[in-house]
Amino acid sequence: MAEPMLSLQGIHKRYGDLEVLKGVDLDVAKGEVVCILGPSGSGKSTLLRCVNLLEPPEDGEIFLEGKDICKGPGSGTGEQSWNLDFVRQRVGMVFQQFNLFPHKSAMANVTMAPEKVLGRSKSEAREKAKALLERVGLGDKLDQYPERLSGGQQQRVAIARALAMDPHVMLFDEVTSALDPELVKEVLDVLRELADEGMTMLVVTHELGFAREVGDKVVFMDGGVIVEQGPPAEVLDNPQQERTKKFLGLVLER
């Protein structure tokens, strides 16, 4: 089997006495779409934030394209001991609250990082940003400021912004949870297209339909561990673990 794109091994994360991740192992192949489900507080968002080192894990190893991106505990404190640049330029992230830069237009939101971090020229960055914004269906909103955009539009700008850095892996942290129901689809459609184009994706979501349709693998987390994982049909339709059954029952009841 080919080397996984991303491999998490024994990830632990604590906040003081609270252990949020208690040893998580997960392999993600290139082009694979992994949907992570679980009740709130199960550690799924923290897991995503560990992958791009926004919250460096205390213990365990993360291999990205075969490279150990965190040397583990004891190798020093502070950001210098982590391979931040390597990670952040290969891993894009989209947040629940969009986190667009409100003082910048949609276009400038997308061009900022390529210009400042990758040193692309203004015209090159603009050209690429325009193409990306058109791709997420916002070709007519290039110069709008975030406050003029709906939640769904903002989230699509945020996706374009992350894609502008040419990531190899995309992390989606409950990207539709803050949206009005009628705006969810336009964002999920963008995710679906990305998946079709072969992007490697980790998607924390409560959208079971999306997980079933788009996910190559579904991971159910609870209490800081992975309880069950497998193809969507197995995990969603024929869960083996009690906790998974209970959670799915509660979600489907809605």
């Binding site: 926004l54 952040r88 992230m93 986190n99 667009l100 900022m112 971090v117 992350a162």
Partner: peptide, 20 residues
């Protein structure tokens, strides 16, 4: 979230402070 978004895009702390 503003700093986190900037950092997740590869900006350094000082770039995030300066630009965002």
């Amino acid at each position: 979230g503003q700093i986190e978004a900037a950092r997740s895009l590869g900006m350094s702390h000082s770039q995030a402070m300066r630009n965002v």
